[in-house]
Simulated scan of single mutants.
Amino acid sequence: MELNLEQIQRVGTITREDFLGTYVASQKPVVIEHLIEDWPAYQKWNLCYLKQLAGERTVPLYDNRPVASERKFNEPHTSMKMGDYIDLLNKKPTNYRIFLYNLLKEVPELQNDFSYPDLGLKFMKKLPFLFFGGSGAKVFMHYDIDLANILHFHFHGEKRCILFPPSETKYLYKIPHSLMSHQEIDYTNPDFEKWPALKKAKGYIANLKHGETLYMPEGYWHQMTYLTPGFSMSIRSVAKNMGNFTEATYNVFIMRYLDNFMRKVRGQKWIEYKNSRAISKTNKMNGYD
């Protein structure tokens, strides 16, 4: 048995009116295949180019180790020079990823390589984040802290994206006081005996190739698998739904600090409690207790 996933609809190009009326209004994801082909980045951005521009920059790295109490919310696991990291990506599979890194602030020349699409959303101009991964690297199922509308542009290679709308949260074994699903779930090959509620979840899937754009609506869960070494850039627009905006405000100003405080006070017992609670609450809610 596999996850109940529908292919994300694809369009070649799209007008501002169609994007707002068909996808933003209904909060449905879409892949836009040719949105950025007029960007200099479409021709220039690859791992070799970024190594040339930013090879001496020290970048934060994350891997797939479970959340632990000794680390703060979203604290990186290690660091490395960008050039050495790109060499590693090209040499062999690795779990090390770059996550939420504002390389464009560190290397301003990159800002000349793209523009913000005129799709009717007001994008936060200071937050274009980059994400890198090696062949086979996986990102845990999660949703973003600000529940933003996101345009996710992929470069150099191919990655697989699994999405779930917020309506499916009740099936995804969400960890309390966090933005993540239970980390032991392998969404590329789920064990439905261990995680039975997943059988009820309905989501979306798409493979992104160089130059393609994924629209992820507000608060959508997403899990990424890098099929080849590559990187992506995300730009975001604040949540328009008042409930999502309120939750985002809580996440940014209260939730992450509360979680860091409890990690410090209760240590690993806090992590174990949250993991256990995710399982018991989800199973009970769905009749599997």
Rank of each mutant, 00 (worst) to 15 (best):
M1K: 11
L3Q: 02
L5P: 01
Q9M: 07
I14V: 13
I14P: 02
T15D: 14
T15Y: 10
E17M: 08
L20W: 07
L20S: 07
L20D: 06
V24Y: 03
S26R: 12
S26L: 09
I36V: 15
E37W: 13
D38Y: 12
Y42T: 11
W45N: 01
C48G: 14
C48F: 12
K51M: 09
K51Y: 07
A54V: 08
G55N: 05
E56S: 15
T58A: 01
L61H: 03
N64A: 12
P66R: 09
V67H: 06
R71D: 09
K72C: 02
E75P: 09
P76E: 04
T78S: 14
S79Y: 11
S79F: 08
K81D: 04
M82F: 08
G83L: 02
I86W: 00
D87K: 00
D87S: 07
L89F: 07
L89S: 00
K92D: 10
N95G: 10
L100I: 01
N102V: 11
N102C: 13
L103S: 02
L103H: 00
L103D: 03
E106V: 11
D113E: 08
F114W: 10
S115C: 12
Y116V: 03
L119T: 04
G120M: 07
G120A: 12
K126H: 13
L127K: 13
L127C: 10
P128F: 05
P128L: 10
F131M: 08
G133V: 08
S135L: 12
G136C: 03
G136H: 03
A137H: 01
V139P: 01
D144I: 00
L147R: 14
I150K: 01
G157W: 05
E158I: 12
E158K: 13
K159M: 10
R160H: 12
I162N: 01
I162H: 06
P165G: 10
E168K: 01
K170R: 15
K174G: 01
K174Q: 15
P176A: 11
S178N: 12
S178L: 04
L179P: 07
S181A: 15
S181R: 07
D186Q: 10
P190L: 08
F192I: 06
P196R: 04
A197T: 02
A197K: 04
L198T: 05
K202D: 09
G203H: 00
Y204L: 02
L208I: 13
K209W: 05
K209S: 07
G211T: 10
L214P: 03
P217W: 03
E218C: 00
Y220Q: 07
W221F: 02
L227F: 06
T228Y: 03
P229T: 01
S232N: 06
S234I: 06
A239N: 06
N244W: 04
F245W: 05
T249D: 07
T249K: 10
V252C: 06
F253Y: 13
M255K: 15
Y257N: 14
D259L: 00
D259N: 10
F261I: 06
F261Q: 11
M262I: 02
K269V: 11
W270C: 09
I271C: 03
E272A: 13
Y273T: 13
K274M: 12
S276F: 12
R277L: 14
A278L: 06
A278S: 15
I279S: 02
N283L: 07
G287F: 12
